[in-house]
């Protein structure tokens, strides 16, 4: 059986690459895999400290600054996962040139595994967020499960983009250099750090279709307001994700025939 040109053996290999990626990233450090959890956790901790105790930021109409932190992290956590996924998948082919040159396999699997690596920071930030919510007196709710479809769509979407970037990066290595800067611009251009209402009215209409904003809202609505994300936003995200994944696979498969000239 084949799905999008992948079979069972590819699935097994994908799991292998995931394990490999996780191990290799922290190889040589004493704490090893602990860092996979400690890094995002430290990041969230710093954010909590800075915004809850230093800046004492508040959402419009909210009484505590903890609610701002919760709001922030519910958007920033997925963002952290997105940037992690994109950075890892962009370098996935070039960084594994030894494998690409010495093993016959579908190279698509490398950026796909790279993108799935974002699941780790996402899991950590989500756990952290749930802990904060419970601490602030919110009772866990079934509606929280509504983030699952968003999560799936997010990774499909990012995998598609990651496939494109990974293929381009083989030929134009500058891609990996430019990426962090582009991500930074994207982060501040999307309503993740500030609520959409703080943007100028004229921009708001456009920004609500910003895919990263749609993803962030997909987490915020269920976790913070116990509401399902707007159906149009899920549909919109689904279409975008399908297009991204399909386009990414086609693009990658077209270019991978030329990898041997560069790797």
């Amino acid at each position: 059986m084949q799905i999008l040109g992948f079979d069972r053996a590819d699935a097994r290999r994908l799991v292998n690459f995931l394990k490999m990626g996780l191990r290799d990233r922290f190889l040589g450090s004493t704490l090893g895999l602990v860092w996979a959890i400690a890094n995002p956790l430290l990041m969230m901790g710093i954010f909590t400290f800075v915004f809850a105790f230093v800046f004492r930021s508040r959402l419009p109409g909210a009484e505590t600054s903890l609610s701002f932190v919760i709001w922030l992290i519910s958007g920033y956590g997925p963002w952290l996962a997105i940037s992690d996924s994109l950075a890892t998948s962009t370098g996935a082919v070039t960084g594994n040139s030894g494998l690409v040159k010495n093993l016959a396999f579908k190279t698509e699997l490398l950026p796909i595994a790279g993108s799935l690596m974002g699941l780790v920071p996402l899991a950590v930030s989500t756990c952290y967020l749930v802990a904060l919510l419970v601490l602030s007196g919110t009772r866990p709710s079934l509606s929280w499960l509504a983030i699952l479809p968003v999560l799936v769509l997010q990774f499909v979407f990012i995998t598609g983009i990651g496939l494109c970037l990974a293929a381009v990066n083989v030929f134009v290595r500058d891609t990996a250099m430019v990426l962090p800067n582009v991500l930074m611009i994207l982060l501040f251009s999307s309503p993740i750090f500030y609520p959409l209402s703080e943007f100028p009215k004229a921009v708001q209409g456009v920004l609500q279709f910003h895919p990263f904003h749609v993803i962030a809202e997909g987490y915020r609505q269920p976790l913070l307001y116990r509401a399902w994300p707007a159906p149009w936003s899920l549909a919109y995200l689904a279409v975008l994700s399908a297009l991204a994944l399909f386009g990414g696979l086609v693009f990658f498969r077209k270019l991978k025939g030329y990898f041997d000239a560069r790797i």
Binding site: D24, L27, G28, G98, L99, K101, N102, L103, A104
Partner: peptide, 16 residues
């Protein structure tokens, strides 16, 4: 099944 030795370069991380 193919076992190949295309080069002696290690296909992997030297930290392993």
């Amino acid at each position: 099944l193919v076992s190949a030795i295309y080069e002696l370069g290690m296909a992997g991380n030297e930290l392993l």
